[in-house]
Amino acid sequence: MRADGLPLTPSMKAWGLTRSYGSGDTKTYALRNVSLEIYPGQIALLMGPSGSGKSTLLAVLSGLLHPDAGTVLTLDKDLWAMNERQREAFRLEHFGFIFQGYNLFPALTAREQLEMILKWGTGCSARDATARTSDVLTMLGMSKKAHLRPMQLSGGEKQRVAIGRALIKQPNFVFADEPTAALDWKQGQHVIELLRAAAHDQGSTILVVAHDARIIPFVDRVLHLEDGILYEGEERPMELYGGPTAPSPGYIAQ
């Protein structure tokens, strides 16, 4: 519910998502009829054991992996009904990503890693790119380290640059895969606070995949995925424990 009591409109709706790997006897399901809604201005945490399908769900929702079945409706557009080029343009306009590794170009400074996205992606002028990059670096507390290359930065600083790269386009959605995994808790906490601020201040929809339960107090909502089935909340509900063939709880709404 919004502060004024009106219901939130989801920024992304997905239903019937199924995705399998392999075929025949070796066929395994990473997603089984998963449905969910996520909302703008919120940070949602997707948890679950290793191999539960978290990364697959993130990939399907973010337009990187085609589902076997199901629909992802985002900003009223069917993500998987688009052709490759349209989806690429859609990602460019609306999606930001943070991956487990920092994946920064070793030769480029923190500033260049961010400016590159604006210059190559949005075609904005060099002056605008510089100004916007400065703003984002300040927000990340990295303005004094803008001239440093990845090898001169700590793990936490590198991750902040990676977050900057995801946020610089001011995307409607940010998908983060284990953004705190390689960091100590103090740095991890800072990272999650930055993401939380992006959701609450800029109204972005943020979906974080993580193992670390210490993040839970910082997020607005927790989703749990196990054996390809999605549940609302931190734990898989006891009554649903019934083995791998348990039916999907179906549609999960706020």
Binding site: S62, L64, E88, A89, F90, R91, L92, E93, F95, G96, F97, F99, G101, N103, L104, F105, M116, I117, W120, G121, R165, A166, K169
Partner: peptide, 14 residues
């Protein structure tokens, strides 16, 4: 640099 390029591709850079 494939991983770095892959991030750019994910972000929709042509």
């Amino acid at each position: 640099s494939l991983k770095e390029y892959a991030v750019l591709r994910a972000l929709g850079i042509p």
